[in-house]
């Protein structure tokens, strides 16, 4: 996508019970990008929406918790409807360094989906062994399916062009874990995909989307099935 002189950027941040630091993260992001910040509050029980508004964000609230992917998609649909040129998405927990936003947006000049990779040029990000193994495995499969190297399939730090937003707004977009399979679909649909190195900030203690015992098992099943189905489906843009 060729960005126009003054592209309208929408920053999308899905948030579930992030009241503690959402305001600080929104303010940090607003310091880096000229554009609106949309926080999608995915049915939080705490004051996430109030805190996000204090930080200067527009807030879209799901009355019920739908999942990470669905929250992202709400952001994509909002962006399309309000005529934004591109979306920059990042997590609300403050792990994604706002300083990495400009290079992500810059890479949109020659790509439709720019993924911020935490593994390119020897970063400090070292997930636990089992998770690293899973990321490597699914990353390899996604790379094979898409015909290009994907080093960080689970990264939620991305820049997305308007063309790709149309692709993402379809109901094929998964509600729970949109990662390796979505990237493989993107590349196979003819949209241009690229990775840019990003920096991670130390993650806040506690919660992870992949915590617990059953969730990782379900994730492995879910992602294997989704990746298996990718070559069996023909996705139209």
């Amino acid at each position: 996508m060729i960005l126009s002189e003054n592209p309208r950027i929408l920053v999308v941040m899905p948030a579930f019970n992030e009241a503690r630091q959402i305001r600080r993260v929104v303010e940090a992001v607003r310091g880096q990008v000229e554009g609106d910040v949309l926080v999608v509050d995915d049915g939080s029980a705490d004051d996430t929406a109030v805190e996000a508004r204090r930080g200067g964000a527009i807030v879209a609230t799901h009355p019920v918790n739908l999942g990470y992917g669905a929250a992202l998609q709400t952001g994509y649909r909002y962006a399309l409807r309000r005529g934004y040129d591109a979306v920059l998405q990042l997590d609300a927990d403050g792990q994604h360094d706002p300083a990495s936003i400009p290079p992500l947006l810059g890479a949109l000049a020659h790509a439709d989906v720019v993924v911020g990779s935490r593994f390119l040029d020897g970063s400090s990000y070292r997930p636990p062994l089992l998770r690293r193994l899973g990321m490597w495995l699914f990353g390899s499969v996604a790379s094979a399916l898409s015909g290009q190297r994907i080093t960080d399939p689970t990264s939620g730090f991305q820049a997305i062009s308007r063309e790709a937003l149309h692709f993402y707004s379809h109901e094929r977009y998964p509600v729970d874990y949109p990662d390796a399979d979505v990237l493989a679909m993107v590349a196979r649909s003819g949209l241009r995909l690229t990775e840019v190195p990003v920096r991670m900030l130390p993650s806040p203690p506690g919660k992870s989307m992949h915590g617990g015992f059953l969730k990782p098992l379900y994730y492995v099943f879910r992602m294997s099935l989704a990746l298996f189905l990718v070559p069996l489906r023909s996705e139209k843009r």
Binding site: D41, T61, A70, R77, Y78, R81
Partner: peptide, 21 residues
């Protein structure tokens, strides 16, 4: 039904965000 609930919830969130904005 899941798909329909998702669509409705998202629509509601978008509309309320637009109204607030």
């Amino acid at each position: 039904l899941t798909e329909q609930v998702r669509r409705l919830t998202q629509e509601l969130a978008i509309l309320s965000a637009e109204r607030d904005d």
